[in-house]
Design a protein around this nucleic acid. Structure first.
Length: 419
RNA sequence: GUGAGUGUAGCUCAGUUGGCAGAGCACCGGAUUGUGGCUCCGGUGGUCGAGGGUUCAAAUCCCUUCACUCACCCCA
């Protein structure tokens, strides 16, 4: 087998595919009830979009971006990349449609595949799907709270046990003081920090907080919550109050930081212990300066993204194992019966039944075996005799009973059996 | 990019001090001419990840390499 799939890319068959659909359908249902509008955007965008939003020093831009080289043809079009996340593209579309000026308050959801060049592991792929929600034009804490409540509805519908962690990173007014304190702390403890943290001190000091090798030491680092200005403090208190009233089981994690540097104020993460080390199945937060940074009018924003594959890992197999077995499998014996079998299948499908038409090339015994293993409740057998008499043999594969049914009555009999 | 583990039939895995490549499951057929599941019998299916070396002889020992998995980094 040479033509294998690429590293980090997955095929999903049977129950695995159903699990993903189930997660996606569930998210769509919740989004529908929240009256969000779907937005579909391209998979490929200009590279600058990601450089300007995610931050040029972030790993996503530095080494995870799938650059699409079209050197000769696209020379004048600028560099392009497969989207590593959805938020920048949604904001670009929002600005490009002029909504930031004409009607800034918008509520979107999107669903699609994202691409990041990383070493795969459990819960991490190079192509993966995200279901995301973005709310523009609202700076109030209630919009943050509503997102978290939405996620809680989503995970309850799937029967997931998860942990909600929330934090506030402050804003342009108070973050500089926190950042300075963190850098100061890092320099003071430089000798005790691990090699990774030495890198973080340069590149992304906030990351010092969630170091795993020096977790004990990291706990002594300054927290953004202690540096919040009054407006930020009030905002966070309101978020907490609202999600508490809504009964969301959350904890404040002062060491929770986000990977992308456009976040401010509220950040949150939903984790499951069932999916491996990459345990975050949903993450999000507020990004008030981002629309403006991407060339739009100043508009606040807040949003989250659900990892579809990671969420699917967390749901128990018995919730999607049964994949809708056929109501009946039709078995045609002899060439003459094939046309009649196809006609019967059409009739039955038109009345809403799920019908599988089995191959006429094999023997009755083999076909009954396939019908049984395919999970069909009934087998409908049509041969020369049945054709002539205008009937079918309807065999109940569960009860092992069989009787002759007039063609016109098959649909009703199957529907009755389905209950 | 770093580290560890694993590669033998479609799947899960045995394979002894180096000596004919195996089992279970799955699939196909038969026992039963047009009647499934259970049972019995039979069959298809292999570049032992790949390349090289040692040896009369390598799935087994040595070297190289590739892939997969998990973890770090990072993140959904």
């Amino acid at each position: 087998m040479k033509l294998t799939r690429l590293r980090g890319f997955q095929d999903y068959l049977g129950a695995d595919a159903r699990a993903l659909s189930m997660v996606e359908d569930c998210a769509r249902t919740v989004a529908y009830r929240h009256a969000l509008n779907e937005i579909r955007i391209p998979t490929l965008e200009r590279i600058e979009l990601y450089e300007r939003s995610s931050g040029e020093t972030s790993d996503i831009v530095q080494k995870q971006l799938y650059r699409v080289p079209r050197a000769a043809e696209a020379a004048g079009e600028g560099d392009q990349a497969l989207r590593p996340e959805g938020t920048p593209g949604v904001i670009r579309a929002y600005i490009e449609a002029g909504l930031d000026r004409s009607d800034p308050e918008q509520r979107f959801f999107y669903c699609g595949s994202m691409y990041r060049y990383e070493r795969p592991q459990k819960g991490r792929l190079r192509q993966f799907n995200q279901f995301g929600v973005e709310i523009f034009g609202r700076a109030d804490a209630a919009s943050d709270a509503e997102l978290i409540i939405m996620i809680d509805e989503f995970r309850r519908a799937l029967g997931l046990e998860v942990t909600f962690e929330v934090n506030s990173l402050g804003d342009a007014a108070c973050r500089p003081a926190f950042r300075a304190a963190l850098l100061e702390w890092g320099r003071t403890h430089y000798a005790e920090l691990c090699d990774d943290c030495h890198q973080r001190l340069e590149r992304n000091p906030l990351r010092l907080l969630d170091c795993k090798t020096d977790a004990v030491l990291a706990r002594t680092a300054p927290h953004s919550l202690d540096y919040l200005c009054d407006p930020c403090r009030g905002h966070f208190a309101t978020v907490e109050r609202l999600i508490k009233i809504a009964d969301v089981p959350y904890v404040v994690n002062p060491q929770l930081v986000r990977g992308l540097d456009y976040y401010n104020r509220t950040t949150f993460e939903v984790t499951s212990s069932a999916v491996g080390a990459q345990s975050a199945i949903v993450a999000g937060g507020r990004y008030d300066g981002l629309v403006e940074a991407l060339g739009g009018a100043a508009a606040p924003g807040t949003g989250f993204a659900i990892g579809i594959e990671r969420t699917a890992l967390a749901i128990s197999a018995d919730r999607y194992a049964t994949g809708g077995a056929p109501d009946a499998a039709i078995i045609a014996i002899g060439d003459a019966a094939v046309a009649g079998a196809i006609a019967l299948a059409r009739e039955l499908r038109a009345s809403g039944l799920r019908i599988e038409l089995l191959s006429p090339e094999r023997g009755l015994k083999a076909l009954l075996r396939r019908a049984d293993r395919g999970g069909a409740r009934h087998a409908l057998i049509i041969g020369e005799n049945e054709l002539a008499a205008g009937v079918v043999q309807m065999r109940d594969l569960r009860a092992s009973t069989q009787n002759t049914v007039a063609r016109g009555e098959v649909a009703a009999a199957l529907a009755a059996a389905r209950g």
